[in-house]
């Protein structure tokens, strides 16, 4: 009785249903493919760091080499410090980093590399000059390096890579002394 009184539902034609599903699945596939292509490989502690390019600031090259890859430094302990001129905690550790670099630079076993994260040229060079930084420094072009290193919180952050190119430790925030930097580097031995 009730069945006969109920209004008859008109179903969406099959061709329309198929078209809608094809379009939706196609869009999802496109978005997924795009996201997959855009995502960088990321570093993890205990695993080799994916390779990336370094294009040094003029006057802050490594052994007078303007461009190089991280893999070119295999066999050395690499300390990568991410900083920015607008970052106040970075200023706190800058003199200590330079002092520590002076202790290691002649050994040619440990390399310090500063990576300037999202900065202006004026700000970057002003900062390097202000703190008398002499170790190699490069801009983080398109935030590619910090993205590969899987930057955790912000700046400063420091990454320790051992002689085999494996990420050993991450320091989030500024170092408070030269001794702390030395202890950090000792973890790569």
């Amino acid at each position: 009785m009730t069945e006969t009184n109920a209004p008859q539902k008109r179903s969406v034609p099959l061709w329309a249903q198929v078209t809608i599903w094809v379009v939706l699945v196609g869009l999802l596939a496109l978005v997924g493919f795009g996201l997959n292509r855009a995502s960088n490989p990321m570093a993890e502690i205990g695993k080799p760091v994916p390779d990336f390019d370094l294009v040094y600031f003029e006057g802050y090259e490594y052994n007078e080499t303007k461009e190089m890859k991280l893999s070119d430094l295999q066999g050395k302990i690499v300390v990568i410090n991410i900083w920015a001129s607008w970052c106040k905690p970075c200023e706190q550790e800058a003199p200590d980093l330079e002092e520590a670099w002076q202790l290691y630079k002649d050994s040619d076993d440990v390399v310090f590399i500063g990576v300037d994260y999202v900065d202006t040229p004026e700000g970057a060079f002003g900062y390097l000059k202000k703190f008398g930084i002499s170790f190699p420094n490069a801009p983080d072009l398109q935030s590619n390096i910090s993205s590969i290193l899987n930057r955790q919180m912000g700046v400063p952050e420091t990454y320790l890579i051992d002689r085999e190119g494996v990420l050993r430790q991450i320091k989030i925030g500024p170092f408070s002394s030269v001794a702390e930097i030395q202890a950090f580097i000792a973890n790569a031995e």
């Binding site: 001129s85 607008w86 900065d119 202006t120 040229p121 004026e122 700000g123």
Partner: peptide
């Protein structure tokens, strides 16, 4: 309004 933005505008 930040200092960094002022520098970018100057750039």
């Amino acid at each position: 309004p930040t200092e960094a933005c002022r520098q970018w505008r100057e750039l």
